[in-house]
């Protein structure tokens, strides 16, 4: 490489280096603050010995959301393809689960069923009279 080309090459690299340095020196305040926070987080993490990096948190969130969505879609598809009879029994099963998970006494549900039945039978017998 001749001297002129070498000089031009040096000038080119010098200008690039200067431009990149200027870029680093004129970063936005918000970016500088975020970088400082990131540094402090990294240093604190060393003291606390446990830290999930942002990428891991995002991954965990995405996985959880994905699994929830898959479960929901699976449920919807099951409802769609299941015959009506099976569907009713499935829905009844969900009701049973709800009852079992509820903290209220089982007697309350039995009584509720009774009052519901009583209401319906009274409506049927007095229906004509009330109209």
């Amino acid at each position: 490489m001749n001297k002129a080309a070498e000089k031009a090459n040096r000038a080119f690299k010098g200008k690039i280096r200067q431009a990149l340095d200027q870029e680093a020196d004129t970063l936005d305040e918000s970016v500088l603050r975020r970088l400082q926070e990131a540094r402090q987080t990294a240093l604190l993490q060393k003291k606390s010995h446990f830290y999930l990096p942002p990428s891991s948190l995002k991954w965990i969130t995405a996985t959880t959301a994905g699994m929830a969505l898959a479960g929901f879609l699976g449920f919807v598809v099951t409802l769609q393809i299941m015959p009506n009879k099976d569907l009713n029994s499935t829905l009844a099963l969900f009701d049973d689960f709800e009852v079992l998970n509820d903290e209220s006494e089982l007697d309350l549900y039995i009584q509720l069923d009774f009052y519901q039945w009583l209401d319906e039978s009274l409506d049927e017998t007095t229906g004509d009279a009330t109209l």
Partner: peptide
Amino acid sequence: EKRAFIMARLATCDDEVALDIVQDAML
């Protein structure tokens, strides 16, 4: 950190991603 951020931003063209990458590298 500033130089690392510039490098990451040039590579990703995204400030948020660049900040995450720099933070991961620091950690």
